[in-house]
């Protein structure tokens, strides 16, 4: 996604200030992308976007974000696959990943834990503000 496209989605800034914390949002649903990126940009994060897993993985390697918000069910490459691929590259292997998913089945949670996810948020149980709070918790840790 280009900066212009990104701006058209309603985000505020794009990597203008050097020391802003970089967050990569990998999610295929446009409405969620617009809402979340607006919220996070308003707080002051540098938000990058990817709309499927493959694009996401490329962006991770390219940007090396401070934190990744990752959906599970996506076209081309799913979230679990992205995490498995991240493990193979030590430059990006330890970036905290918060899963944002519509599902939260125990088996999936287990798998996410095995793959090293920092947290798991079920979208229906959280709202953008609470997602932002979670992000703060993990970014401060780092």
């Amino acid at each position: 996604m280009t900066a212009a496209e990104f701006a058209s989605l309603g985000a505020v800034s794009y990597n203008l200030i050097k020391d802003m914390e970089k967050i990569l949002l990998i999610e295929d649903e446009e409405l969620i992308i617009r809402l979340l990126s607006k919220k996070l940009a308003a707080i002051g994060y540098d938000v990058s976007l990817a709309m499927d897993g493959r694009e996401g993985l490329e962006k991770i390697k390219q940007i090396v974000p401070d934190l990744i918000l990752l959906d599970i069910v996506m076209p081309r490459m799913g979230g679990f696959e992205v995490m498995a691929e991240m493990k193979k590259d030590e430059k990006i292997a330890n970036i905290p990943v918060i899963i944002i998913s519509n599902s939260g089945q125990p088996l999936e949670l287990e798998k996410a834990k095995e793959l090293g996810a920092a947290d798991w948020l079920v979208k229906t149980e959280f709202d953008p503000k609470e997602v932002a709070e979670k992000i703060q918790k993990y970014i401060n840790k780092n």
């Binding site: 409405l31 969620i32 979340l36 519509n102 953008p128």
Partner: peptide, 23 residues
Amino acid sequence: AHQLRTPISAIKWTLRMILDGDL
């Protein structure tokens, strides 16, 4: 149920952000 959750979470997030004055 999982399919239903997708649009419903989008509705929730939109309403929440409008209610919180984010939009």
